[in-house]
């Protein structure tokens, strides 16, 4: 296929992605093309579709229960700010920063010692280590296999309630084909008498014997009693039937 045709095909698939009508095969094709073609990751089509829709959307009030639920999640997420890049934290107090710098320069002539901080993006493995070392009250539990086909797996999960942050370190979890199925983490929070909280969908790519996976909890979690990994359909599920339970870590 010529480059022109490839680009046209990508454009059509990308429009399908924005409209939400890609089939499984088309999604795979889009994923291959998006990594092959540079400079085509534009979100223009998506913004355009959103603008077209918003023209006709009439905002309707949130129920008080939903408003409360949304408000309840705010403190948990603001705690995550601790891990933000240094430049963002500094910019919260620009005037104080400038005043302090001016005083230092005027009275102590320390201009050479004032160096800008550069943001550093930690890898998941570094974040895993940092959470264990630096965050007190981090829960640490060992994973054990939950069924025969996965008897080789081991690893651990760490979780911090205050930061609402956690990671899994997984060893010997078999590689999955994201088009066939995906792993999904579930967090059992005893304070919620409903379903376990979705901890995010993840894959084990080829060549990954050891993997560090960040937990992407959809809801706030408090003192989790257990973490369960299941194998689900691509994209994960809202409620797991727990047909294939891969691993379990419990306190």
């Amino acid at each position: 296929m010529s480059m022109e045709k490839t680009l046209a095909r990508f454009e059509e698939l990308d429009a399908g992605r924005v409209l939400g009508d890609l089939t499984s095969e088309e999604t795979s094709e889009w994923q291959i093309l998006v990594t092959d073609i540079e400079d085509v990751h534009s979100i223009e089509l998506e913004l355009l579709a959103t603008e077209l829709e918003l023209k006709h959307v009439q905002p309707c009030d949130l129920s008080s229960s939903l408003s409360n639920k949304l408000a309840d999640t705010i403190p948990a997420f603001s705690n995550k700010n601790i891990n933000q890049p240094a430049d963002q934290i500094i910019s919260i107090l620009p005037w104080l920063g400038w005043a302090a710098a001016a005083c230092l320069l005027a009275f102590f002539n320390l201009s050479d010692s004032v160096k800008p901080l550069t943001p550093t993006e930690l890898t998941d493995a570094q974040k895993f280590e940092a959470l264990i070392k630096e965050a007190p009250n981090t829960l640490r539990l060992a994973f054990s296999s939950a069924s025969d086909p996965y008897k080789e797996i081991s690893g651990e999960v760490i979780w911090n309630d205050d930061l609402q942050e956690g990671y899994m370190s997984l060893i010997n979890l078999p590689v999955n084909d994201p088009n066939q199925n995906q792993y999904q983490l579930w967090i059992v929070d005893p304070k919620r008498d409903e379903l376990p909280v979705d901890g995010g969908v993840f894959d084990i790519p080829y060549g990954s014997k050891n993997a560090i996976i960040p937990i992407r909890n959809a809801l706030q979690v408090s003192k989790p009693a257990a973490f369960v990994i299941t194998l689900e359909q691509p994209g994960g599920v809202v409620k797991s039937k727990q047909e294939i339970v891969v691993a379990l870590a419990k306190s």
Binding site: S78, K80, I92
Partner: peptide
């Protein structure tokens, strides 16, 4: 930047649209 009050205003302003 982790401004809680901005997040509250964000939910107040855009919550109805998102909903």
């Amino acid at each position: 930047k982790g401004d809680e009050s901005a997040m509250r205003r964000c939910i107040d302003s855009y919550g109805p649209l998102v909903w």
